[in-house]
Structures are given as C-alpha cells and as structure tokens.
Design a binder for these strands. Structure first.
Lengths: 141, 141
DNA sequence: TATTGTTATACTCTATAACTATA
DNA sequence: TATAGTTATAGAGTATAACAATA
C-alpha cells in the first residue's frame, strides 16, 4: 500500500515514512541479492572489502555499524562460500581480503547495487531527488 | 559513526543511507517509546486506532503493512496491558477501540512522536528539509 | 588496560503455512 | 469462495555479556 494521507495519519510523519521507505526498499534489495546467494549485509561487506582491502573484522563493523559479535558469523558465512580469506596482521588481528571468486561476486553485487540505486532515484520526483542523500546523511549517526 | 564519504564507499548510495538513517532513527525512537512500556510498532497501532477507531485487526495490518499473523500477538500484548478492547462487528470481525487507559497512553505516544519528529527534521539542513517527506513517500509501496 | 575475535543468548521484526470459523 | 483471526515456525538483524588471547 502506497503512502495514503487520507487513511493513514502516520503517513505525514517523516520518521514513519523513513521506516516504511527503508523496509520496502530493503526487502526489494534483499530479493535481488538473494539471486546471487547473498544477504544485504553480506553484500555490503563485499563492496566495502573490494574498495578497501585489508580492513579487519573490527574495522568493517565500525564502518558498517555491525557489532563485532555479529561480524563473526557473517564473515564465517562468506568465508565458507569461498569469497574471502583472512591474512594475519599480527597474532591478534586479521586482514580480510577478497578471493578471485569474491571479486567476481563483488562485481555482481556492484551491478545489482547500481541498478537498484538508479531505480530508487528514478522513483523520486525530480525536484526532490537530489535532496534525499544529504537529508538522509544528516540523520545517520 | 556519521556518514563518512572518505572511508565508507557505501555512504554515497541513497539506498544505503536510507537504511542507515532508518535504523539509527528507529533505535532512538524505540528507546523513547520504551520509557512508556511500548514497542514502536505498538505505539504506531495506538496512534492509528486513536485517529480511526473501529478498524479491525486486518484493516490495521493493511494500513501499517503488518502481516495479519503478526497483528495477533501485537494486539494481544496491548490488550493485556489494558489499552484496547475488541467490540464484535459480526461473528467474524472485531472492531479495535482504545480504553480510557489506552487513550491516555496514546496521548503520551503522540507527545513523544511530535518531539521525535521535530528533532528529526531539525537535524536536516534547511534547504533539504521539506524534500524529505515527499521523497520518502515516493519510495514507499 | 584496551582491543580482537569469538561464542552464547535473546529480542524484535518479518515472513509463510496452515487451521478454524464465518462472510 | 474469500476473508478474519489465530497458532506455529523460521529467517534476519540487532543487542549485550562473557571469555581467551594479544596489543
């Protein structure tokens, strides 16, 4: 059901609209990432590692706002899938790097992401479009 | 961590910013609703029932995009808390109505919501502020 | 002392399937 | 036949606490 001011008194609230827009869009992105066997969070990690190889698990968690405790099983899944390897930095930390298969998968994630982002922006009336990203960035911390 | 274009290549993606902004803001709203013993979804139901008394469980679910199966335990919780009652419409459907205690709680939800929404908008640079709601509504269905 | 990586655990939201009863 | 309400169940994201090992 699209935003319906007449019947839904919550539809006029930016915070509520933010939640509804995010859940709807993320559900759609989840379906697309599912076609290549990835969850959205796993896909976001592949994009980050591709852009910044050598980050540690803790680094990735801080940047993507994922708790260290939740990074462990996430990395285990994409490692089991052969997409990443761990290179020891010292006896405590490990750099996360993409494998060849991981780089291939990352490129697929990038293609899906670019198409998704383009379609998302296309849905927004032109006069509002360029304001979305800066407005959202101001709400994020 | 706020949006950081230099270190987070995902920060320039509107869809990713949408997710981050929504999770951050909803976590904050969740804390505030928690002070009156409610979850965000429960609070949204109280606001809707207050504005449109007599809706059925199925109606509420369709408007708020909550599955019928998930409405059952949600309504059971706020009924057990004495905030709503059910009035039979026929032998199959029930109208959901606020009790006196429910109306009091709804007013508290409204106050929290108004303060939250005002603070949310205040964070957005003025030139972008009025564009957020229409942009989000265009993404929601 | 602080940080890394990990395990265990729990809560919330969301999703589907299946069932009974009634419109 | 379709809809209302419910139960059971599972997947996903998120959160805290606790631990061993190392910086």
């Amino acid at each position: 059901m699209p935003a319906d001011l007449a019947n839904d008194p919550l539809a006029a609230l930016p915070g509520y609209a933010l939640r509804r827009a995010a859940t709807t869009q993320m559900a759609q992105l989840s379906v697309r990432m599912g076609t290549i066997g990835l969850r959205v969070t796993e896909a976001s990690v592949l994009l980050l590692i591709g852009a910044r190889p050598g980050l540690t698990s803790a680094d990735i968690g801080k940047i993507l706002d994922i708790q260290r405790a939740n990074m462990a099983p996430l990395l285990a899944r994409i490692e089991d899938a052969g997409l990443i390897v761990r290179a020891p930095i010292d006896r405590k930390s490990q750099a996360i790097l993409l494998t060849r298969a991981g780089e291939t998968r990352r490129a697929e994630v990038e293609a899906i992401t670019n198409a998704f982002e383009a379609e998302l922006l296309a849905r927004i009336p032109a006069e509002h479009r360029d304001h979305l990203l800066p407005a959202l960035q101001a709400l994020w911390d």
